[in-house]
């Protein structure tokens, strides 16, 4: 009689422990897989940005082609302010600057300027905190008209591996779903920016199975014809990156 009563609860407890164990294993697998699918959000650290001080006023027509694109005055002023600050700190104040393009995407304000002598700046602007970051400072190298060098404080990673796989016709072990319209601009750029995206996804979320669509209308290619500013959207996250077509390098600016 005693034995019977003693036996009864043991079996359910063992079963419960077994089921709980299974649940924990499944949960661990699920979370682990989830982590490998999830793209962590990213913004460039505070210390990389330059705070604008209000020590001088920027005249309304700082850019050589001021007002030509009809951007809102406050945005063009902010770009002018940042370019002037950077130019003064880097001995570029003698240059005439042309505003080539500006856009805003999910609060990220981007400006692209060039000088008459081939210098180009790509800037990220923060209107709220009045700060800026020069992501690319491109200049023509002294060695040759066709050799360029870019100055950037950002960390660049290469996507050679993905590029070489494509060139050799091999299928990668991992693959991601990347989509773009082929009739927009030169096809090579999209292919290579997709390789850059794959390289990034592989490094942060190898199990990611989202469909990443290139936001081709937000695309900008500088006069240099080498570094493109590109966005990819999965519907859940947006990745903002710069892709260097010559060196097969990329850098992530934002994951929103």
């Amino acid at each position: 009689m005693d034995r019977k009563y003693w036996m009864k609860p043991v079996i359910p407890i063992r079963i419960c422990i077994f089921i709980l164990g299974c649940i924990l294993v499944l949960l661990w697998l699920f979370l682990n897989d989830g982590l490998k699918r999830h793209i962590p959000s990213f913004t460039i650290p505070e210390e990389e940005w330059t705070k604008l001080d209000r020590s001088y006023e920027v005249e309304g027509e700082y850019f050589y082609n001021a007002g030509e694109w009809h951007y809102a005055t406050e945005y063009e002023q902010l770009a002018a302010w940042a370019v002037r600050d950077y130019a003064e700190k880097n001995g570029l104040e003698q240059k005439k600057w042309f505003l080539r393009h500006m856009y805003r995407e999910d609060g990220s304000v981007n400006a692209f300027v060039c000088s008459g002598t081939g210098r180009e700046l790509y800037l990220l602007l923060d209107e709220e905190n009045e700060k800026y970051l020069v992501t690319v400072d491109w200049k023509v190298d002294d060695l040759s008209d066709y050799q360029y060098s870019e100055y950037s404080r950002l960390v660049w990673y290469d996507y050679w591996e993905w590029y070489n796989l494509e060139q050799s016709g091999q299928k990668p072990e991992y693959d991601f779903v990347v989509a773009w319209r082929e009739d927009y601009y030169e096809n090579n750029f999209w292919q290579w920016s997709a390789h850059a995206l794959r390289a990034y996804l592989y490094s942060v979320a190898p199990n990611n199975r989202d469909t990443w669509v290139c936001m081709q209308k937000s695309f900008y290619m500088g006069k240099n014809g080498c570094i493109g500013d590109v966005w990819y959207d999965s519907g859940k996250e947006k990745i903002h990156m710069l892709v260097n077509m010559n060196n097969k390098e990329y850098t992530i600016l934002e994951v929103l």
């Binding site: 009809h70 951007y71 809102a72 005055t73 945005y75 500006m102 856009y103 805003r104 995407e105 999910d106 609060g107 304000v109």
Partner: peptide, 11 residues
């Protein structure tokens, strides 16, 4: 959208 504010609001 807010992105459109980059342009002069007259448009």
């Amino acid at each position: 959208s807010e992105n459109a504010w980059i342009y002069d609001t007259v448009y």
